[in-house]
C-alpha cells in the first residue's frame, strides 16, 4: 500500500524522558479525544446515585453523600485502545476502595454500568488497593459531560475503555462477564503493557 508522503496524523513526538511511559503501539496526543458510543447522557445531580449491587444488600450513595466521601487528587497516564495516550492527566475523585470497603462481599469480579447503557467488566482486585477512582473532576474543573461527567470510572492501568463514562454503579459477580466492548472483540482484561486490545491477544 502506498505511503502518504508527509502524513503524521496528530501525534506528538515522544521525548526520551517519557518514552518508557508509552505502552507498545501507542502515541502521545496533546488534546483529549472524545470517544463515544452514543448520545451524551445528562442526569441531573438530584437524580444521580451510585449503587453497588450483588452483595448481601445493595448500597447506594446520592450525589451529596458521594461528594461527602473522602477524595483525592491523582495524576495518571491514560491509554486508549485506539492508540492515543496522554501522560500526567490530573483528576479528583473518590477511591473505589472507599466505596467497596463498606460493602460486605466476596466477589471476584464486577460489571460497571452507566447511564446510556454502557457496561464494562473488571476484576475486583483491579479496582482496589488504590488502583481506581470514581472521578468527578478533570484538570481542576468539574468533569465535562462529554468526558463522562458528572462521574466516570478511572482505571488508568488498563485501556481507557474500562474507565467507564457516566458510571452509575457496580454489580458484583463471581464470574467475569464481558461488557459492552468485551463481548464484541475487545479483550476481557485489557492491559496496555501487554497490548491486550482484542480477543486472544
Amino acid at each position: 500500500m502506498p505511503i502518504s508522503r508527509g502524513f503524521r496524523g496528530r501525534r506528538s513526538p515522544v521525548d526520551d524522558d517519557v518514552a518508557g511511559r508509552v505502552p507498545p503501539g501507542q502515541h502521545l496526543v496533546d488534546d483529549f479525544p472524545v470517544l463515544s458510543a452514543g448520545p451524551t447522557p445528562h442526569t441531573p445531580l438530584d437524580e444521580w446515585s451510585f449503587e453497588i449491587r450483588g452483595a448481601a444488600e445493595p448500597v447506594s450513595w446520592t450525589w451529596q453523600e458521594f461528594r461527602d466521601l473522602p477524595s483525592e487528587s491523582v495524576t495518571v497516564d491514560i491509554h486508549c485502545v485506539t492508540k492515543w495516550s496522554k501522560i500526567d492527566t490530573s483528576w479528583e475523585g473518590v477511591s473505589v476502595d472507599t466505596l467497596l470497603d463498606v460493602v460486605e462481599h466476596d466477589a471476584a469480579y464486577l460489571l460497571a454500568f452507566c447511564d446510556g447503557g454502557y457496561t464494562t467488566n473488571l476484576p475486583v482486585e483491579d479496582v482496589t488497593d488504590g488502583k481506581a477512582w470514581l472521578a468527578y473532576s478533570y484538570e481542576g474543573e468539574p468533569l465535562d459531560p462529554e468526558h463522562g461527567g458528572p462521574v466516570r470510572l478511572l482505571v488508568p492501568h488498563l485501556y481507557f475503555w474500562k474507565s467507564a463514562k457516566w458510571v452509575r454503579g457496580f454489580v458484583l459477580r463471581d464470574e467475569d462477564e464481558p461488557g459492552f466492548w468485551e463481548s464484541n472483540g475487545y479483550h476481557l482484561y485489557g492491559d496496555p503493557w501487554r497490548e491486550q486490545r482484542y480477543w486472544g491477544d
Partner: peptide
Amino acid sequence: RLTAEDGYQA
C-alpha cells in the same frame, strides 16, 4: 485512507 511511514493509518 492515509498511511504514515511507521504504518499508522487514518
